[in-house]
Every structure is written in structure tokens, then in C-alpha cells.
């Protein structure tokens, strides 16, 4: 199967505007249709290594387009549609790509019922994966981008599909979402080319997405074994600290970040219980990316 980048950008734009393209991430696929040219261009760059096809089965039929109501005449706005229905408020035209990414996150955690979907990043090195759940603003994505730049494999930046036996976690390898000061920090490490345009004034401040490395995309179907769970907290100027949380506290925090816990009920509970029984949970605090990455390396080495 070809990668998105094998299609010339102009052709890709035309396909997206017409019948749409099917882009595969991990075991899922979405069909994207959109008349918005800059969105097609961003997808073309950010999903460069993802497999693409023009027909077949797609899990999510996604469209990003102007509203068809009178609203379209007031300010340039776009809506995210899945299977023809829109569940989100329209956003300004410039936010098309973040809107698509947030919409796709919603598609995955709303649909999937055969694994526990955690709001967490997953990175892997030497066969040992780390789960990094965290609320927005804790520095999770920055840490993940830094680790990926150091050669860690990216499984996911936002959603971690944990198998119900708690033994493995799947990859999605979609772009990493960076905010505010982190954008320039990571651009300084990996270069401009891997980044989408920076979108200012979103609900999360400035947002830019970073393309996942080619190796991570190509190996996305290889699940990883969780070895530890890390709750990061970046505070400017803070000294690096790392402490074990214990099973109970780790479980409670993970439960808060589980999207489909209520549908899975007992099976979700047991998956989390199995996870914390086998993986240590840590809380780390740090004041710079380098310190944070060092704490993660230490935990990884000990796990």
C-alpha cells in the first residue's frame, strides 16, 4: 500500500475534495473528505508515511467543511462531521487541522469497546513501553516529542488502547500535538519541516502538530508491553523529583483518564488492576525537558 506522501500534493488535494481518501493508523482507518485545501496540504505533510487507499472499508467517515446553514456567511468557520453528523461546535477556518485531530480522537474513544482507551501517551524502547497519562498542561506531549527525537518509538501521543488483559498496548502513531512554548522548544530540536502551521487562539492556546517519525508509523501494528506508568508534571524552575505512587493511587489516577471505563465496566476495572499489578506507577516533577527525559530514562532502565 502506498504512503500518503507518494501521492503528489496537488493530486492529494483533489482526491480529498472529491471522493475522499482512506488513511490507515494502526488497525483503524478514516476516510477524509474536505474542500479545505490547506487542510489537505497539512494532512499530506503530517500523515506522509501513513498507508493510503482510495477505496475499501473505513472505520470513520470524516468530513471537515463549512456549515451548510446561514452560519457559513458569518465568519469563516468549519465543522467536523463523522458519518454525516456533527457533534462539535464549528471552529474558525484556520483551526481545520487541529479540529480534524480532535475529531479523530473522539471517533476512536467513542467507538472502540475491545480495549480500555486511556488518555495517555505511549512510547517504547528496547521492548519496554511507558504509559504517560496526564491532564492538559502537564507537559506530556513535550516530553513525548523529546523522547521520540531521542529515538524512542512513538505509539501514541493522546490515546492509549490498552488490551483488556492489561498485557499490551496498541500503536496509533498519529501526529503529536504541541502547545505554546513547547512548539519552539521542539522545533529547535527536530527542525521546522516536521511541523504543521502553528494555529493561534485555539481553546488550548497556540497549537502545532508534529509528524510522527517514519519508523514509528511503519512499525505501528507491533504492540508493546507496558513496563511502567509515569504521571509527569512540568513546573518552570522546579527541581527534578521522582516517586513511586503505589498500586491504589496509580489505579485511581488511571481510572480518571479512562474514556470508556463505564461501557467496559468490570472488564475495564480488571484491565487496570492487572496493569498496576505488573507496572510501577511514578509521579515525576521537573523544570526542564532534559531533566524530565533523564527521569524517564532512569525509570525505563529500572523497569
Amino acid at each position: 500500500m502506498d504512503g500518503v506522501g507518494d501521492i503528489p500534493a496537488r493530486d492529494f488535494r483533489a482526491l480529498v475534495a472529491d471522493a475522499g481518501v482512506i488513511i490507515r493508523f494502526g488497525r483503524f482507518a478514516f476516510r477524509l473528505r474536505s474542500p479545505v485545501e490547506h487542510l489537505a496540504d497539512e494532512v499530506h505533510r503530517m500523515y506522509r508515511y501513513h498507508p493510503v487507499s482510495l477505496e475499501g472499508f473505513a472505520d470513520f467517515h470524516v468530513e471537515v467543511r463549512p456549515p451548510r446553514t446561514l452560519r457559513r456567511w458569518f465568519g469563516k468557520q468549519l465543522e467536523f462531521h463523522v458519518d454525516g453528523s456533527s457533534s462539535f461546535f464549528p471552529l474558525p477556518h484556520a483551526q481545520a487541522f487541529p479540529l480534524l485531530e480532535w475529531g479523530l480522537n473522539w471517533c476512536v474513544h467513542d467507538a472502540v469497546k475491545d480495549c480500555l482507551i486511556l488518555h495517555a501517551a505511549v512510547v517504547e524502547k528496547d521492548g519496554k513501553a511507558l504509559l504517560i497519562p496526564a491532564p492538559p498542561g502537564s507537559g506530556k506531549s513535550t516530553l513525548v516529542a523529546g523522547l521520540v527525537h531521542q529515538g524512542w518509538r512513538l505509539l501514541s501521543d493522546e490515546l492509549a488502547p490498552l488490551a483488556l488483559d492489561g498485557l499490551s498496548v496498541e500503536g496509533l502513531a498519529r501526529p503529536i500535538s504541541l502547545k505554546n512554548d513547547s512548539i519552539d522548544l521542539i522545533k529547535g530540536l527536530v527542525g521546522e519541516d516536521a511541523f504543521s502551521e502553528t494555529v493561534r487562539d485555539t481553546v488550548k492556546g497556540s497549537v502545532a502538530l508534529m509528524r510522527p517519525p517514519r519508523e514509528s508509523v511503519l512499525s505501528v501494528r507491533r504492540p508493546a508491553t507496558p513496563a511502567a506508568v509515569i504521571f509527569p508534571k512540568f513546573t518552570r524552575g522546579a527541581r527534578p523529583v521522582s516517586q513511586g505512587l503505589g498500586q491504589g493511587a496509580g489505579f485511581a489516577l488511571l481510572m480518571e483518564s479512562a474514556f470508556n471505563f463505564s461501557v467496559l465496566r468490570r472488564r475495564g476495572f480488571e484491565a487496570l488492576a492487572d496493569l498496576v499489578a505488573r507496572c510501577e506507577c511514578y509521579e515525576i516533577g521537573y523544570g526542564s525537558l532534559d531533566e524530565g527525559m533523564q527521569l524517564v530514562e532512569d525509570i525505563h532502565a529500572a523497569a
Binding site: 488497525r27 482507518a29 472499508f57 472505520d59 467507538a111 472502540v112 469497546k113 475491545d114
Partner: peptide, 10 residues
């Protein structure tokens, strides 16, 4: 096939 099957299983 596995694609549609997972929707049925969900």
C-alpha cells in the same frame, strides 16, 4: 472481515 467485524463486536 476484521475491519467490519470489530464494529459488530463493539
Amino acid at each position: 472481515p476484521v475491519g467490519p467485524r470489530q464494529h459488530l463486536e463493539w
